[in-house]
Simulated assay, not measured.
Amino acid sequence: MNLRWYHFAAWGALIAAMLLMPRLVDLGLMGRGTLRTMIQACYLAMFAISWDVLSGRTGYISFGHPFLIGIGAYGTAILSKKFGVPVELSIPLAVLITMIGGLVVLLPALRIKGSYFALVTLAFMELMYQLVQVIRPDLTGGTRGLSGIKTLTRGAENGYMLAVSLMLAVALGCWLLMRTRFGTALWALGQNEEAVSGSGLSTIRLKAMAFLVSAFVAGLAGAFLVHYNGSLAPRAMFDINSVFTIIVAALIGGAGTILGPVLGAFFLTFLLEWLRPFLPGAERFLVYGAVALVLYMYQPKGIYAIIEGGLKRLWGRA
């Protein structure tokens, strides 16, 4: 592992900021609504990390990530609400279903490249949206979705601590995984797949492993999110804006870095919240899209590269 000092500095700063946030709210320095915004940012960060593991490393751009998130969310919601399975068991089962179901459906798509892969994943997301409405609506809730789902926490602070703990565990685990030989192989796969294949490594196996890790994170985050919200609606789950928000968060934060998508998720979430009083409608997405475009043009490697460069300059001056 090539662990530089600024990596530890970044992780230390992130963990400290996350843990101090409730204290700042208690002191009145921030509103209690900030915690709820942070919770949404944590779940978006996990979705962006999930996308980054697959697309940010291998270069296989997925437009259907809510397909995986939806399997995890619907899986635990149906198991716990309709069949009375304890949440402690329904969440792991939903994650397992996400990994198996997603791999069976999308593994053939990993044999194609470029825009074809992106279109196939987008088609699967739309197919999932249609299926949950027409197949067994007594289980899925049809077009109305599901409500009255058991929640895991009560109160903004408890929900925040759960979301932050889960997000930090996922982010740190994926970051460490990407610093192994497996992560290096995925990066090489994104640079030159033919060279990786010529070196004797199985590109299909590497992509399948990356997909499994991505599906695990997506299913886990989707399952916990539905037990935070207590409800589930198909249109909100499979909205095209959700896809773009996940991708933009990963790209402007810094794709292929794990920590970058976390930064991008928090940046986007708070940007949308700050714009809400001025632009309550969909115009907010136009503004954040313009901001993301300018930032991406200024630094294609994202916010992570900007912060990394700043820390290097400070260290050089010191």
Rank of each mutant, 00 (worst) to 15 (best):
L166Y: 06
L166P: 02
M167G: 04
M167L: 08
M167D: 08
M167R: 12
M167C: 15
L168E: 05
L168T: 12
L168G: 03
L168F: 13
A169V: 15
A169K: 10
A169M: 14
A169C: 11
A169F: 12
V170K: 15
V170D: 06
A171I: 11
A171K: 13
A171Q: 12
A171D: 13
A171C: 12
L172V: 13
L172N: 03
G173F: 15
G173L: 14
C174Q: 08
C174K: 03
C174T: 15
W175E: 05
L176G: 08
L176E: 00
L176A: 11
L176W: 13
L176N: 06
L177M: 15
M178Q: 04
M178N: 01
M178K: 01
R179W: 00
T180K: 12
T180F: 02
T180S: 14
T180L: 02
T180Y: 01
T180N: 04
R181S: 07
F182G: 09
G183C: 07
G183I: 10
G183K: 11
G183Q: 10
G183D: 10
T184V: 06
T184N: 00
T184Y: 14
A185T: 02
A185W: 04
A185R: 13
A185G: 02
A185L: 14
L186Y: 03
L186P: 08
L186C: 06
L186W: 15
W187L: 11
W187Q: 13
W187M: 07
W187E: 07
A188H: 05
A188D: 02
A188C: 13
A188V: 08
A188G: 13
A188Q: 11
L189M: 11
L189A: 01
G190N: 10
G190C: 05
G190K: 15
Q191S: 11
N192F: 00
N192R: 05
N192Q: 11
E193H: 12
E193M: 07
E193N: 04
E193S: 15
E194L: 09
E194M: 07
A195D: 02
A195P: 05
V196M: 00
S197M: 07
G198F: 04
G198I: 00
G198Q: 12
G198V: 01
S199Q: 02
S199M: 07
S199C: 00
S199L: 04
G200K: 05
G200Y: 06
G200A: 05
L201D: 02
L201G: 01
L201M: 07
L201T: 00
S202V: 04
S202D: 11
S202F: 13
S202W: 06
S202I: 02
S202R: 03
S202L: 06
T203I: 03
T203R: 08
T203M: 03
I204R: 14
I204F: 05
I204M: 09
I204K: 14
R205H: 09
R205C: 00
R205M: 10
R205S: 06
R205Y: 06
R205V: 09
L206E: 04
L206T: 02
L206I: 01
K207L: 03
K207S: 01
K207R: 14
K207W: 08
K207A: 04
K207N: 05
K207V: 03
K207G: 01
K207T: 00
A208P: 12
M209F: 06
M209P: 01
M209D: 03
M209N: 10
M209L: 12
